[in-house]
Design a protein around this nucleic acid. Structure first.
Lengths: 245, 245
DNA sequence: CCGAACTCCGTGGTATACCGTATATCTCAG
DNA sequence: CTGAGATATACGGTATACCACGGAGTTCGG
C-alpha cells in the first residue's frame, strides 16, 4: 500500500478524511437526536415528519432521509403511513409493559453475567456512582434533582449491561433505553418511585459485590418487573387519544 | 364512506387491491428468504450481493432494493462496505455465543411468563408436538430425521415464545431464530446434542405443566446457555477465513 | 342552509441519471 | 518475466423527476 509514500514531492498528506460516514448516517443521527429530545408523551397531538421539509432543513436530498427513516421505523421510533405521512410513534400501555418485560429479561441476564465477569474496580465504580445519590435523596430538594437522577438511573442500568461484557446485550437495549427514558420521566414522579429505585439499585450492587449471579439476576428482574407492574396499574393515561389503525 | 355506493351504473367493484405492500417489502421478503435458504456456514467464500443485478432480477429499480438492504443490514444479515459491495454476514464465534446468550435471556423470560399465562390446551399441544419425537429418537434413522427435527426444535422454542403472550418477545427473537437455525444445522450433528435437546425440552414442558415459573425459566436458560457453552468450546471453525476490518 | 360530489394539492413510492472511489486490467519500464 | 503506474470498469451514494393515492377545500344541487 506504500502508506503515503515518502517521495520528495509536495504531498501535504492530510490526516485521512473519513469516507465512511454517509449522509444517511448523519440524517439518522440527527433525526434520532431530535426525536429523543422531544417530550413524546407530554402533549397529546401526533407529531408528523415531512420528508421534503427535513430534506430541505438538513441540506440533503430525500434519499438519505428516507433511508434513515427506514431505520428509525424498524427501531420503532416512527411509523410511516402511505400517502399520509411519517409520524413519531407513541407506544401504547401494553407495548410499554412488553418493552419493560423485554428489558427485564435482558438486564437480568446482564446482571447474572456481570456478577461473574465484572472486575472489582467496575463494581466499585458503580457503587461510587450510586452512593452519591443515596446520601442526598430522602427529602430536601424536589423536581430539579429528579431530572438529574433520571440520567443517573439510566447510567446505572447501562453500566450493568456494559459489565456483562456482552456487546449484543448493549445493542439490543440501546433503543429500549431511549423509550424508557421517556416513560421514566413520568413514572419517576409517582408513588415515591425514585427512592424505591435507589434501594433496589443498592441491593443489586451488593449482589454484584458478593458475586452472586442468581441473586443479582433475580433482583434486576424484579426491579424491572416492578416498573412494569406499576405502569400496568397506573399507566392508563398512555392510551388516550390513540388512533389505532 | 358509502362503501361502493349501490347506484345502478356499471361499477364492477373490484375486491380491493392492496396498496399497502410496497416493492420494498416484497424485495425485503425475497432477499431474506434467499439468505435463509442458503447454507451460510457451508462454504467459506464470501457471498456478495449486487444491487443492480438484484434490481434487474426482481424487476424493480434499485431504490426499493436499497431500502430492503438497509433493513437487512440493521437486522444483521448483510453488511455493506462502501464502494466494495454488500456481503452476507457470517457471524463470528463470539457473536454467535452472544446471540445465544441474548436468546437465553429472552426465552427464559418467555418460559417464566408462559408458565403462568399459557392455557392448558396450549401446553398440551406443546407436549403432543414433542412426544412424537421422543418416541422415535434414540437410534433408528440418521441424518434425514435430524433435519426434520431441526424444524421441530425451532417450532418448540417459538411455541414457548408465543405462549408468553408477549408480542415484543416474538419480534425480538424472530431474527435470532434465523441465525440460530443456521448454527443448529451444524451443532445438531455433534456430541449427540439432538437427544439431549429432547430431554431438556421435555423437562421444560413438565415445568410448564406444573405451572412453575421459576423452574421453567431456569431450565430454559440452562438449555440455551448449554448450547452457548458448546459453541464456545467446539465452534472455533466458525472464525476461519474471516476478513475482519 | 346543508350535504354530496368534484377538484386540487401534498405526500410517500418509485425510477433513473450522475458522481466519486475502489478494484481490476492493461501497459511498459526494468 | 516481474512489478509499478496508468487506465478502465463497476459499485454504492446521492440527487432529482415523476407517479398514484389520500385528504382538504370548493362547488353545485337539493
Amino acid at each position: 500500500m506504500t502508506e503515503a509514500s515518502l517521495r520528495p514531492g509536495a504531498t501535504l498528506d492530510m490526516p485521512r478524511l473519513d469516507t465512511g460516514t454517509t449522509f444517511r448516517d448523519l440524517a439518522y443521527a440527527a433525526l434520532k437526536r431530535a426525536i429523543c429530545a422531544m417530550d413524546i408523551y407530554g402533549h397529546p397531538e401526533e407529531i408528523r415528519l415531512d420528508e421534503r421539509r427535513l430534506s430541505e432543513g438538513l441540506g440533503v436530498s430525500r434519499t438519505p432521509i428516507r433511508e434513515a427513516m427506514t431505520l428509525l421505523e424498524q427501531e420503532g421510533f416512527v411509523r410511516t403511513r402511505p400517502r399520509r405521512g411519517i409520524y413519531v410513534v407513541r407506544k401504547s400501555k401494553r407495548e410499554i409493559v412488553e418493552m419493560i418485560t423485554v428489558m427485564a429479561a435482558l438486564e437480568s441476564m446482564a446482571a447474572r453475567l456481570a456478577a461473574v465477569r465484572a472486575t472489582d474496580s467496575e463494581v466499585a465504580d458503580l457503587r461510587r456512582l450510586m452512593d452519591a445519590f443515596r446520601d442526598g435523596d430522602g427529602s430536601t430538594n424536589g423536581g430539579a434533582r429528579l431530572a438529574e437522577y433520571s440520567d443517573a438511573n439510566i447510567a446505572f442500568h447501562q453500566a450493568i449491561i456494559k459489565m456483562s461484557g456482552c456487546a449484543m446485550l448493549a445493542d439490543m437495549t440501546e433503543n429500549l433505553f431511549i423509550h424508557m427514558r421517556a416513560i421514566r420521566k413520568i413514572t419517576i414522579h409517582q408513588d415515591n418511585r425514585a427512592a424505591r429505585s435507589v434501594v433496589d439499585h443498592m441491593a443489586i450492587i451488593e449482589a454484584l459485590e458478593r458475586r452472586d449471579p442468581e441473586l443479582a439476576e433475580r433482583l434486576a428482574r424484579e426491579h424491572a418487573l416492578g416498573l412494569a407492574q406499576h405502569v400496568e396499574q397506573h399507566g392508563d393515561f398512555l392510551d388516550t387519544t390513540r388512533d389505532d389503525v
